[in-house]
Design a protein around this nucleic acid. Structure first.
Lengths: 161, 161
DNA sequence: GGCCTATGGTTTTATGATGCAACCACACAA
DNA sequence: TTGTGTGGTTGCATCATAAAACCATAGGCC
């Protein structure tokens, strides 16, 4: 099969997320949904993407439990697409992407918006990774550990990362 | 043209990062590079991807300044691919993806590894977003502000997010 | 040197995904 | 009833991806 090599069975959590939202449009749709867009036409308008692939993406996102369809709020018999808890949980991913762009983009002056603390109106700090006890961790302070086997079932399978 | 709609000119920082690393393989290549892989064959072996597209991806990543080619360390006249500072800067993105998977995946028991604090061996906390003054921020505590115009040049252009 | 194998790719070819335009279905208003 | 706007689906041309074959170079061995 020449298939798009799904990472669904992969043991690596990064591959698994990419399987759900690792394509060109999904994260942008989620971004707009975070801004309150709900209707097919709103997404299509804002993102300027082809309607058929928007349709396909929405369906996949609903299948993955990232969006849910609601029976329309304004009376009209159409659907609305709203973020689920899982969908809202992508927020740190979006922030990480944004901050990476802000820090390393070759033309940061072209970036139109900055993410600020609503109360003070000041830019937020870079995402921080901390240990359980609160110590700030750098990448080098971390490592990967094999998952403690979930009780029996000899975990010999794919030892992928 | 039917082209892959590049987001390069877009004003949204998320779209801009997706333009560089938003495809199926790039982040996985970066992940492996973080683990110390450097050679073409190592990537090909570990990721099991077709050699031609590995070749293409590596080239794009080098073009974007995420990887750099080094003239081989073991004598052989081949190249090695090492992460640049920009490449290492993707770490929070990888962590965010990993944590999203850990939290929302339908089959979290299939995830093989956990990210731990090297010193204590305990799982790291979820990524935290803080204000300049150190307050912990939830998504709702943040908002987007238009970028303060970088001195002259009437910023009327694409007011995309 | 001649032969084998490993490494690091490029080329070829088939198929899936994307983008655009056209079309259909439904609701609502004039 | 005709029009108009919304919410999609269908067809088709083009692009990207995947798999395998092919090529080039280097090193080991005789």
């Amino acid at each position: 099969m020449v298939k798009r090599t799904s990472f669904e069975g992969d043991a690596c959590p990064i591959a698994r997320s990419l399987d759900a939202i690792g394509d060109w449009w999904s994260l942008l749709i989620i971004r707009e949904a975070r801004f309150g867009l709900r209707r097919f036409g709103q997404f299509q308008n804002k993102l300027g993407m082809a309607k058929n692939i928007l349709s396909a993406r929405l369906r996949v996102l609903v299948d993955h439990g990232i969006l849910a369809t609601a029976p329309a709020s304004d009376g009209s018999a159409y659907q609305e697409y709203v973020l689920t808890e899982k969908g809202r949980g992508t927020f740190p991913i979006l922030v990480a992407l944004r901050q990476w762009s802000e820090e390393f983009d070759d033309h940061p002056e072209e970036i139109a918006t900055i993410l600020v603390d609503r109360e003070k109106g000041r830019p937020v700090k870079k995402l921080e990774m901390r240990a359980e006890d609160g110590r700030l961790l750098s990448p080098a302070d971390t490592m990967l550990k094999p998952r403690p086997a979930p009780r029996r079932r000899s975990a010999a399978a794919r030892s992928d990362r």
